[in-house]
Write a protein that binds this DNA or RNA. Structure first.
Lengths: 247, 247
DNA sequence: TTTCGAATGTGTAAAAAATACACATTTAAA
DNA sequence: TTTAAATGTGTATTTTTTACACATTCGAAA
């Protein structure tokens, strides 16, 4: 089998392979999964949606939402399928982050996984079953997880920290209408640092992507802030202006 | 098979799976490959190392350096193995970029691939066989390739354009000793734009990562420039200062 | 040996972006 | 009516980025 593979690439003979279907049948195959790091934002904390592991070796530990990639399924589709199954929705922000392939990352044998990062608005999402088995966890307070999922989570968190400074992704985590304070709390939670309020507001105001909805917060025990919504349309149209290369 | 997978994740019964080896054996498997986008720099042009496709359907087209991922092999190791086989070296810059999984990306059936980006110093690398079948191509002048490799190359090129503005990766593409003009030519070739000479030099001088080797260019038909080498040690030690998070 | 062509090496001014920082205003609650 | 707490706002400073020109050095050609 390996010889055929080598022949394909080295092409020592100069012959062209005509039966490429046959060739692919000889390829070694590996189990492949997709794991979704689903971030949410609630009570001024960055949360991640986890499911309790049902492997005995990981008794009590939590794991990311994952599943096998099935025949002829694109990785993105597998990730959307997982989200749909777990949260009931798939019209959410989703991006591939990277693959993890350490041979012993799964105790049952070699399983390669592709990590995805998803951002969802917790308020919007009526999770199918949010219970003892499926739960939102504070990202900061997690210390260990099943498989290599803590490593994956840490990686995706750093990835997100970098990403939200280049793209206005944060809005995916907020309700439709939000105050600037909520927006700042979100950024502070993700980046795990304090930001200057005036400079933060100035920055977002200058982007011109906030629509003043002429409403104010209710049920706050102090002066209520104005509410805005994010101009997704304008953002889509002018992406390149703000982000440079769409990447 | 799918039911078992589902059971694992949904854990309806509350039972913990003890035989995780057995469980993984039930996972669907897919053919998985690694493709390396090997960049080089020569004659002031960004080059990519390609091999002639030996599939009849791609007669005449070129493809990236790729191979199957074999049993228990990490993706990084597979990529290094490919580099070693093709270039005779594996102590080079290498980074995973992303996976490509369109079901029809390979005419022989569904094959998922993980793309890697590698940067090598063409002068250093005495390629095993650089001939009609294995060749350096000017990136700008390529328009089509076998499989989805043109898409992968384009993606990796953009990835590199972004990456070299955040990390001093360019040095991996240059000889040990280089002039500032060569360095600038490299950046201009990768970014495909013109840079201001004084600002460019100022920027790199201020990084403090260039060691003046007290030599000058030879064989240039004009005033020769000073030669420098890159301080890899200092860079490794102070990564965080320059890059922030090591990501 | 002189001259010419071509690229090197260098600094400053202007503009833009990021940062630091304080006070009057509004609302709910006491 | 007073108090507590958070909102809303502008300017000065620093840092970073950008634009821009001329004297110098060397090789090549006359």
């Amino acid at each position: 089998m390996k010889n055929i593979v080598r022949k394909m690439n080295e092409n020592k003979t100069g012959h062209l392979v005509k039966d490429h279907k046959r060739l692919v049948e000889t390829y070694p195959k590996v189990p492949l999964t997709v794991d979704c790091v689903v971030f949410g934002f609630e009570e001024n904390e960055l949360k991640v949606l986890l499911i309790r592991s049902d492997l005995a070796v990981f008794d009590g530990l939590w794991s990311l939402l994952g599943d096998n990639v099935v025949d002829n399924e694109e990785l993105d589709d597998a990730a959307y399928r997982i989200l749909r199954e777990r949260t009931g929705m798939d019209d959410v922000y989703l991006d591939q982050v990277r693959s993890f392939s350490h041979p012993s990352r799964h105790p049952g044998g070699r399983v390669i996984t592709v990590a995805y990062c998803s951002l969802i608005n917790i308020q919007h999402h009526h999770l199918k079953r949010l219970d003892h088995e499926l739960h939102w966890h504070n990202v900061q307070s997690l210390t260990s997880m099943a498989f290599d999922h803590f490593e994956i989570l840490t990686y995706c968190h750093k990835w997100l920290q970098k990403r939200i400074q280049e793209h206005p992704l944060g809005f995916n985590l907020l309700p439709d209408k939000f105050s600037l304070r909520e927006l700042q709390n979100l950024y502070e939670a993700i980046l795990n640092l304090q930001l200057d309020r005036r400079n933060f507001r100035k920055k977002f105001a200058s982007m011109g992507l906030l629509i003043d909805v002429n409403e104010i917060e209710t049920d706050v025990p102090h002066r209520p802030g104005k509410l805005y919504k994010f101009d997704f349309d304008k953002y889509e149209k002018n992406k390149r202006k703000w982000i440079g290369v769409d990447f």
